[in-house]
Nucleic acid binder design. Structure first.
Lengths: 201, 201
DNA sequence: TAATTAATACCATATTTGTGGTATTTTAAA
DNA sequence: TTTAAAATACCACAAATATGGTATTAATTA
């Protein structure tokens, strides 16, 4: 069985590499490997691939949003996430989850598991010390919250953010509280980490 | 001219990909592509490659430390950094600096520039908004400082860190101050970002 | 051995954060 | 159009951070 794959990742070199790698496998056909999410969505719509490989952290659109969108359009499509990080907030729509530390063998194995055998392959390390727990609740921040999170990470404090957005400091604090609750963090260190992992920044 | 290259990166898949990519180029010979820094150092010592490709952020040893070590041992060796981030603290020992968003063409071009033409190829985006400025001063944190930075990023507060390390909160605050000064940040958001970028965490 | 760096400790204080609420208006979706 | 979600604003207060010092004791290196 030939598996048709679309790859979306923000690193061109990663795309080049993974294409070169898949080239060696006759049963895998890369329909498109791109950094452009819109191109990817168009291709997925028209070509109907078996599998989409993507990352969670991407600048334009969060991987989570992309996945939700794709699964909504084509529920049968398989999604593989190749991420830098070992924790995800929502694995609802994800069929395979691998770290970028993975190797060729595991990658090919996971593709077969997901596409041919209709199984899931989720490689997630539950880090007890950091208390990273998987949850099935979608962490979807509002646009305003993302705006604020970006400013926090740019080392702006509450008053600076309030001035920049022409809103009250109280409002900023409220958003902050909501963000903290949604991302399950208790301070800015945790927030910054999560933002990195989710590709918000 | 055949260029002998050693690649060190913490992502196996990246290594696989880049090897597959270099395979197409007859003038490039990958002596070793590994996630293990010690193996890399051994190979570099014995094989004397033209170029070492590495990342700044790696778990075991910081890329900066690795580069400093290599250049000390073999001053003639060329160093290419392939990083996720567009800012570096020290470019003293680095001959080429590319983002992982780069493509095959640029990568090959940069290798030729550095190895054959003895030039530098530093692709650094100076982000004015974030005020990222290149500096030639080595940012080298002490082991204690690194210990503390890791705890801060794990969302520990000053008292918790003091208790964990059996030292006074004052001491923790002093380390904190020194870290902030060295990394040129003003709060934990900046600290966390820098730690990510430098691969401390 | 002299000099330097690393690690430690302490003080003071203004500013900022984090946490606990409540509540209104605007926007978007069902 | 009714309902729900998003964005807004306000209050209070303890806890923690950031910033400005000074200073002593290892440990390491020139």
């Amino acid at each position: 069985m030939i598996k048709n794959i679309v790859i979306v990742d923000d690193h061109q070199l990663f795309l080049d590499g993974i294409c070169a790698l898949f080239n060696k496998h006759d049963d895998i056909k890369v329909l498109l490997a791109t950094t452009n999410i819109k191109d990817a969505i168009n291709c997925i719509d028209s070509e109907n691939p078996h599998l989409v490989i993507t990352d969670i952290s991407m600048p334009e659109m969060s991987g989570i949003e992309l996945i939700a969108l794709l699964k909504k359009k084509q529920p049968k499509i398989k999604i593989m996430v190749l991420s830098m990080f070992a924790n995800i907030q929502s694995y609802k729509d994800i069929d395979a989850y691998l770290l970028k530390e993975t190797n060729e063998e595991e990658l090919i194995f996971a593709i077969n598991e997901v596409v041919e055998k209709n199984r899931k392959y989720l490689k997630i390390i539950e880090d007890k010390e950091e208390n990273i727990i998987l949850r099935d609740n979608n962490v979807l921040l509002t646009t305003r919250e993302k705006e604020i999170i970006r400013l926090i990470i740019k080392e702006h404090n509450t008053t600076a953010i309030a001035e920049k957005l022409f809103i009250s400091t109280h409002t900023v604090m409220t958003h902050r509280k909501n963000i903290f609750f949604k991302l399950e963090v208790t301070n800015i260190a945790g927030l910054t980490k999560k933002a990195f992992q989710l590709g918000i920044i």
